[in-house]
């Protein structure tokens, strides 16, 4: 898939006058919720498992402001189990992959980019025995990593930038630029460029609800974060720290402070060609 996206982008090296590449990596904890059997009330708790994300996005813009780009993001969630009294609560190993493509128009004061993304969930299914007619068990469905169609989606992606990029500006993003598929899929970012530095604050929001069934809709956690990006020529390095507000993806149980923290690093390359 990545090779296909790269092949599709080759002709655009001619088409685009500004080419940028943005990569990011993020580390967080996924907090799996469970109902503690020892308590009668206020019994929703959670246990953490490590979670890591990376993303890459290529974007090209012509001198007329026409935009075409594509990206790929992936989030991996480690498997974990917590013994809660007589019940074992499990978080299966899960890998979320998200290729996407977008087009747009940059009018300097407003930049609107729309596209499509494909959210593909691969998770560790447990083996599922099948009952024979006499009540004994036979081998049913095999366990192991498999494509969960129930948790895979097609979704629009977008980026709306208000105010010129060179000064203070706001970005509304769904599945765009640097993001984790679980932690900040839909977010609002305020960006303040200051010389070689660029400071930012962002809040990730609840994902738009599926119009068919909210039970099976694409969900994402909500976080607050701040970041800084240091530009050197065509390169830039950045770091963002964030705090988990609402652990919606794996259920809403009480989460310890240290398990709410997240850290991401960014690396980008931006080349503006001289107009032909």
């Amino acid at each position: 898939m990545l090779r296909l996206i790269l092949l599709l982008l080759v002709p655009l090296g001619v088409w685009g006058q500004e080419v940028s590449l943005l990569t990011s990596a993020q580390m967080d904890w996924l907090n799996k919720s469970y109902q503690d059997q020892h308590y009668v009330t206020n019994n929703w708790l959670s246990f953490p498992v490590p979670e890591g994300s990376w993303s890459v996005e290529v974007r090209q813009e012509t001198s007329q402001g026409h935009i075409l780009g594509a990206g790929f993001a992936q989030t991996g969630i480690a498997g974990g189990q917590f013994q809660n009294g007589t019940v074992a609560v499990e978080q299966p190993t899960t890998v979320l992959s998200f290729p996407y493509v977008f087009v747009g128009q940059d009018w300097q004061w407003i930049d609107l980019e729309l596209g499509l993304g494909w959210y593909i969930t691969v998770t560790d299914f447990s083996a599922d025995p099948y009952t024979n007619a006499d009540g004994t068990f036979a081998t049913g469905r095999a366990g192991g990593m498999g494509w969960s169609r129930e948790a895979s989606y097609t979704t629009p992606v977008f980026l709306l930038r208000l105010l010129p990029e060179a000064g203070f500006h706001l970005k509304f993003r769904l599945g765009r630029e640097d993001f984790s598929l679980v932690e900040d899929f839909f977010n609002i970012e305020a960006v303040l460029p200051a010389g070689d530095w660029q400071w930012s604050a962002y809040a990730s929001l609840r994902t738009p609800q599926d119009f068919i069934s909210s039970d099976t809709a694409l969900t994402s956690n909500q976080r607050l974060g701040v970041g800084g990006l240091w530009k050197v020529g065509t390169w830039a390095w950045g770091i963002k720290v964030s705090y988990l507000l609402n652990p919606e993806y794996a259920g809403t149980g009480a989460v310890d402070f240290q398990n709410r923290l997240g850290l991401s690093v960014l690396w980008s390359w931006n080349l503006k060609k001289t107009a032909p």
Binding site: I120, R141, R149, E150, Y153, T216
Partner: peptide, 18 residues
């Protein structure tokens, strides 16, 4: 390929069937 059939009975459909 179909990614999701919007039906809980289809969580594990073979790749080629989609």
């Amino acid at each position: 390929t179909t990614l999701n059939y919007n039906d809980p009975n289809f969580s594990r459909v073979g790749v080629f069937e989609g």
